[in-house]
Nucleic acid binder design. Structure first.
Ligand code: FES
Ligand code: FES
Lengths: 141, 141
DNA sequence: TCTAAACTTGACCATTTTAGTCAGGTATGT
DNA sequence: ACATACCTGACTAAAATGGTCAAGTTTAGA
């Protein structure tokens, strides 16, 4: 059970953005350098963040990205869903009556995993970008 | 962020074992049939469960596996660790001072993921096999 | 004693996912 | 015009996943 880099990068990048986009838009190049993330990879990630209205952008020289909402309105769950870092604990389709092994009833562990999923999602729904900002405000480069 | 089949199967198999090992050892073949898990794959999983003293076995005809402790003494965390389904949220080595991106300091999201890891592990430490048994006791095949 | 059931071990493999790279664009401020 | 920066899609090496396969060893019971 692990978190992928895509999700981690998305949050790192947005924390960076939240810190530096107050005056001008921030270029991916800057984020790439500051956070040590591949520029090309960042572009893929921001493409999704933009589709999900988490960031907006202006093109051209001096262009860049900026948050489309305030940091306290952006929850972790929004970010991770945007980049397809979904929490997936059950194997079966939830709506279906069938179990993960193809049997007619849900498997003996189904309810457990479902409970776990809720447990994790609750964590993500509570945390906002703002929360991450507080803890790191002192160590601006 | 997802749970792998190995972890899911391990728990399913042990719930099965807890239900049926009270009189005789249970063969993997039976578990395979009841739970719909590949026999060969189960063998790999049980090899690890045995190394971690979660189950014991007797060989030969009428042999099989049985739990080495009582269901309420076996926590989810024991099971999942045994089959290497570890929760891994941070990318960096925790002891190291370096961050996940090779920089000198921990990244801006490190503490967040660490907190998430604790959050998930707490869930696994609370739940025991016994808890799963209760919820499913009525639907014995 | 013979045999079949069941555990044991290790190698092997197809598919999928991950974490990117690469090669082109297009838009725009100066 | 031109450099900067966003945008798009195709491609890929490496790792993880979810198994299978082959060749044992052990032991209960006929
Ligand atoms: S996880 Fe839903 S039936 Fe097994
Ligand atoms: S996750 Fe530990 S430094 Fe980034």
């Amino acid at each position: 059970m692990k978190l992928t880099s895509k999700g981690r990068y998305a949050v790192m990048a947005l924390v960076d953005l939240a810190r530096f986009d107050t005056i001008n838009p921030v270029s991916l190049r800057d984020i790439s350098l500051r956070q040590g993330i591949s520029l090309d990879y960042l572009e893929q990630i921001f493409s999704k963040l933009k589709k999900n209205q988490i960031v907006k952008s202006t093109r051209g020289t001096q262009g860049g990205y900026f948050l489309s909402k305030k940091p306290n309105e952006i929850k972790l769950t929004n970010i991770l869903n945007a980049v397809d870092e979904k929490v997936k604990t059950v194997q079966c389709k939830k709506e279906s009556k069938k179990g993960c092994n193809g049997k007619a009833t849900k498997c003996v562990t189904h309810d457990l995993w479902d409970e776990l999923e809720t447990h994790i999602n609750t964590f993500f729904e509570k945390k906002s970008l703002q929360d991450l900002l507080k803890n790191n405000s002192e160590r601006v480069n």
